[in-house]
């Protein structure tokens, strides 16, 4: 039996105090090397779930265990974030540096790596994603697909144990979508993908969850949950 990396128990969350619960008693266990695709209607709390896992949001009740410990404070979650790469739905929210290289090196530098180490790991990550010669490109001039790959590189360069991807196939053409699938299948990490794209989910994940009425249920048939 593999170790659980994330264990969420009886999570309740709502954006407004007293408002309708987005998550109502959600339980989720993510094991090492597991790949889960989370689906569900819009507003079901898929992004909320990812944000709760890295402590960007705090649940009203329930516990979040990550990497073998209960995580409560901001300080606890800093360690979680260092080991969890979170790729946002919109790459423009994530990429803010002038050049691709600087953006990819931003995480490693924050983790205390020296300039040379950070540059080395960033160039290596760009190579792995087939983004050679992208290092001096200006981030805001990239196409949507390129931005997506660079934003993935910017979290992979932190060498995380777990990857959380929010709608990674959004706005990707077939070429970039296939490339992303190929990359995700080549890396050996625990992955949670939140996506509506069933074809994408089936090609990248082994387990499927459906968020409905604030709870996560195993999806019976792949992707759709019906």
């Amino acid at each position: 039996m593999k170790n659980p990396v994330f264990e969420l128990k009886d999570i309740h969350f709502s954006y407004m105090p007293g408002g309708a619960d987005v998550l109502a008693g959600l339980d989720l266990t993510l094991f090492e090397d597991e790949r889960i695709a989370v689906t569900g209607p819009t507003g079901a709390g898929k992004t909320t779930l990812l944000q709760l896992m890295v402590g960007l949001l705090t649940p009203f009740s329930g516990t979040v265990n990550a990497f073998g410990r209960e995580r409560v404070s901001e300080k606890d979650f800093r360690e979680v974030r260092a080991r969890t790469g979170f790729c946002f739905q919109n790459p423009d929210d994530q990429l803010f540096c002038a050049t691709v290289l600087e953006d990819v090196a931003f995480g490693p530098l924050n983790l205390g790596k020296s300039r040379d180490e950070a540059l080395a790991v960033s160039l290596e990550t760009l190579d792995e994603l087939g983004l050679e010669n992208y290092e001096n490109k200006v981030t805001y001039r990239l196409s949507g697909g390129e931005k997506r790959l660079v934003s993935l590189a910017s979290v992979l360069s932190m060498r995380p144990d777990v990857l959380l991807l929010d709608e990674p196939s959004n706005g990707l053409d077939d070429y970039h979508s296939d490339k992303l699938i190929e990359i995700l299948n080549s890396i050996n990490k625990t992955i949670v993908i939140v996506s509506h794209n069933n074809a994408f989910n089936e090609k990248t994940c082994g387990n499927f969850l459906r968020l409905e009425n604030g709870q996560a249920k195993p999806a019976i048939s792949r992707g759709t949950g019906h």
């Binding site: 974030r81 790469g85 979170f86 929210d93 600087e102 931003f106 983790l111 950070a118 932190m158």
Partner: peptide, 23 residues
């Protein structure tokens, strides 16, 4: 957007200090 950018930076362990790679 400012809130999302801030969250994304937190996820990459930003703690208020910028390190530049440019020499």
């Amino acid at each position: 957007r400012a809130e999302r950018v801030n969250a994304a930076m937190k996820c990459r362990c930003f703690d208020g200090k910028f390190y530049s790679v440019k020499k």
